[in-house]
C-alpha cells in the first residue's frame, strides 16, 4: 500500500510529533508514504477568501503532484483534508475550472485529471488497511485505557464533501480505539468544534468551545482524548490550561494524536512517539 503524503504546515512546525510517530509504525503495517515534497500549504480554508482562483490552482497543483506519482493523497490534518477535497470537488465538477488550473500547471509538466483520491490517515486505517488486520498487529493492547474520541469538524462536515462518518454519530475513530484494545467513554462533544480556527480573532469564545469539550471529556471519566486533527490537538493540548481556567475541573486531560495512539498499541514508547512534547503530560 503506497500513498503520497501531504505535509501539513502545522505538522512541520508545532505538532512535529504527528509525522514523527507516524514514521515509526507505518512500515510495520507495510504502508509506504511518499512525502509530497513539492506540495504547498493548502491555504487552511483561508486562501479562497483572498482569491478563489489561487485556491483552485494551488490545491489543484497539490493533487496533480500526487496524480503524477500515480498515488492517492493522504493527510493527517482534517482541515487540509477538507480544503483539498473542496478543491477536488470543484475541479471534478467543472471542466472550465479544470481548464483554468491545467493552464497554470502545464509549464511544470503537471495536469489535474481527478484520478487521485484525497484521504485522511484515519480512513486509510479503517477502510484501506482494515481494522481486523490492524488488530492482529497490536503488540501492546490499550486494555483498560479509556479514550474520549474527539473527531472535530473537518473530517465530518460538510458530509457532502467528506461522506465517511455520520456527522451526528461518527464511529470510525471509536472503532479504531476498540481495534487497538482501548475502551470508549461516551460524551456529547465528540463531534463538536474545538475552536481552533478562531483562536486568534475570537480567543475567549474559542477557548469556551475548547473548554466545553475538555470538561465534557474529563467529566465522562476519560484517561485520554484522542483526535485525528493536529489543529484540534493544539487547541485541546496547548491551550488546555487557559481553556479550563476558572471552570473548577478536577484535573487536566492528556490529548493524543491518532498516530500516537496507534504507535502505543504497536509497542512504541511515549518518547518514541513524541508524547513527551505535549503541553499536558501524558
Amino acid at each position: 500500500m503506497k500513498y503520497a503524503y501531504f505535509l501539513s504546515c502545522i505538522n512541520e512546525s508545532m505538532t512535529k510529533e504527528v509525522d514523527l510517530s507516524l514514521t515509526r509504525w507505518v512500515k510495520d503495517l507495510g504502508i509506504e508514504l511518499v512525502n509530497l515534497e513539492k506540495g504547498t500549504c493548502c491555504g487552511g480554508s483561508n486562501l479562497d477568501y483572498v482569491s478563489p482562483d489561487h485556491f483552485l490552482v494551488i490545491n489543484g497543483r497539490n493533487i496533480a503532484l500526487a496524480e503524477k506519482m500515480g498515488l492517492d493523497l493522504v493527510t493527517s490534518c482534517s482541515t487540509c483534508l477538507m480544503t483539498l477535497r473542496r478543491a477536488k470537488q470543484a475541479l471534478d465538477s467543472s471542466p472550465e475550472k479544470r481548464e483554468l488550473v491545467n493552464g497554470h500547471l502545464a509549464g511544470e509538466g503537471l495536469r489535474y485529471n481527478g484520478t487521485s483520491d484525497v484521504k485522511h490517515l484515519l480512513w486509510v486505517l479503517t477502510e484501506d488497511y482494515g481494522l481486523n488486520r490492524l488488530a492482529a498487529k497490536v503488540t501492546a493492547p490499550l486494555w483498560g485505557v479509556r479514550f474520549a474520541p474527539f473527531y472535530g469538524c473537518h473530517i465530518l462536515r460538510p458530509s457532502s464533501l467528506l461522506g465517511r462518518d455520520n456527522p451526528t454519530a461518527p464511529s470510525s475513530l471509536d472503532r479504531l480505539v476498540e481495534a487497538l484494545g482501548g475502551s470508549l467513554v461516551e460524551y456529547g462533544s465528540k463531534n463538536k468544534c474545538c475552536g481552533f480556527h478562531t483562536l486568534l480573532v475570537a480567543e475567549q469564545q474559542s477557548l469556551s468551545m475548547t473548554g466545553n469539550a475538555l470538561e465534557d471529556a474529563v467529566r465522562a471519566g476519560a484517561d485520554y482524548i484522542v483526535t485525528p486533527c493536529p489543529l484540534c490537538h493544539t487547541a485541546l493540548d496547548a491551550y488546555q490550561d487557559k481553556a479550563l481556567d476558572g471552570r473548577g475541573v478536577s484535573r487536566n486531560i492528556p490529548v493524543l494524536h491518532l498516530s500516537q495512539m496507534v504507535g502505543l498499541a504497536l509497542g512504541y514508547s511515549k518518547e518514541e512517539l513524541g508524547i513527551d512534547r505535549h503541553m499536558i503530560a501524558a
Binding site: 502545522i10 512541520e12 504547498t40 483561508n46 483572498v50 480573532v201
Partner: peptide, 18 residues
C-alpha cells in the same frame, strides 16, 4: 489572517506560523 496564508504560499509555500 487570510491574507497571511495567501502571502506565505507565495513566499515559501508553507505557512509561517511564528
Amino acid at each position: 489572517h487570510a491574507q497571511a496564508f495567501f502571502d506565505d504560499i507565495r513566499s515559501t509555500g508553507r505557512l509561517r506560523e511564528a
